[in-house]
Design a binder for these strands. Sequence first.
DNA 1: CCTATTCGTTGGTTCGGCCAACGATATACC
DNA 2: GGTATATCGTTGGCCGAACCAACGAATAGG
Lengths: 147, 147
Amino acid sequence: MEEIPARLSAKPTWLITQLSVHAHRLATEAFAEAGAHGYHYRILTALDEFGVASQADLGRRCNMDRSDVVAAINEMAAQGYVERTPDPADRRRNLVSLTETGQQQQQRLEQSLQRAQDELLAPLTAAERKTLTHLLHEVLTHQRSQR
Amino acid sequence: MEEIPARLSAKPTWLITQLSVHAHRLATEAFAEAGAHGYHYRILTALDEFGVASQADLGRRCNMDRSDVVAAINEMAAQGYVERTPDPADRRRNLVSLTETGQQQQQRLEQSLQRAQDELLAPLTAAERKTLTHLLHEVLTHQRSQR
DNA sequence: CCTATTCGTTGGTTCGGCCAACGATATACC
DNA sequence: GGTATATCGTTGGCCGAACCAACGAATAGG
């Protein structure tokens, strides 16, 4: 019926980009249930893991552009998940901190994402998931080091 | 300096989406050298592999929306890589065919992509690449069967 | 015959990822 | 100390890939 060209389906770049579409769709749907976006999850998780940070730090940790951090923080501050206070030690900076409800939101998103994750990797055994994760990690860190 | 939250970098969805950014960038740069886009490569390859097809067929094979097929065909028809003729047997359809120069373009893109591919997977051995490809393929086909 | 379905096309939205520029501030160098 | 350089937050924009809704024309199925 709708066969895929072999030259496409044999290429890792094709597989990765196609799979990222599915992964992205699953993650987006999961986040949408909690009224959040991908950027929001990244920032909440970074704050939960490393504590208070400047917006620039968050951008670097979450691999986001500074301007996108601004927008995400605006939205989450309006929702009460995050607080923005000027850094007394460096008045260029804003210190972003996680609120109580922000932490709860992080946990909600964490669980939603976990479910999406399981759905995505359903056909793989635990060992295969580990192998896949390891290989992807390998390639990604190499790619990151290249620039 | 700019550490990445462990909860992110351990998640296949994160790894896949982040890696797809790199894969996509490498592929896009490779295609840009030949003045093409990712959608163009997909269609050219599908035509090369399966021969003449309707736009709707191309969309299904390349996993593209019909409307995006229209735009890509427009561009490639203007470049002379592809020809659009009405199907006499079904006047709703257009039959899209590959021209001589279109076939050459497909080969150019094929080679460019191969180079991007090698760059992306540089840190992996041949065996690891095979494993990765296999696992990705597994997950993707399962995902495709889900809808 | 008439209802669904398919096809190509137009026009629009969304989301993630970017870039350029700005004023304010901080750091480094001379 | 003063001056260049860099960083930070912010605004406002761009792009590409994916997708959706709706339309007229044409076909297929009952």
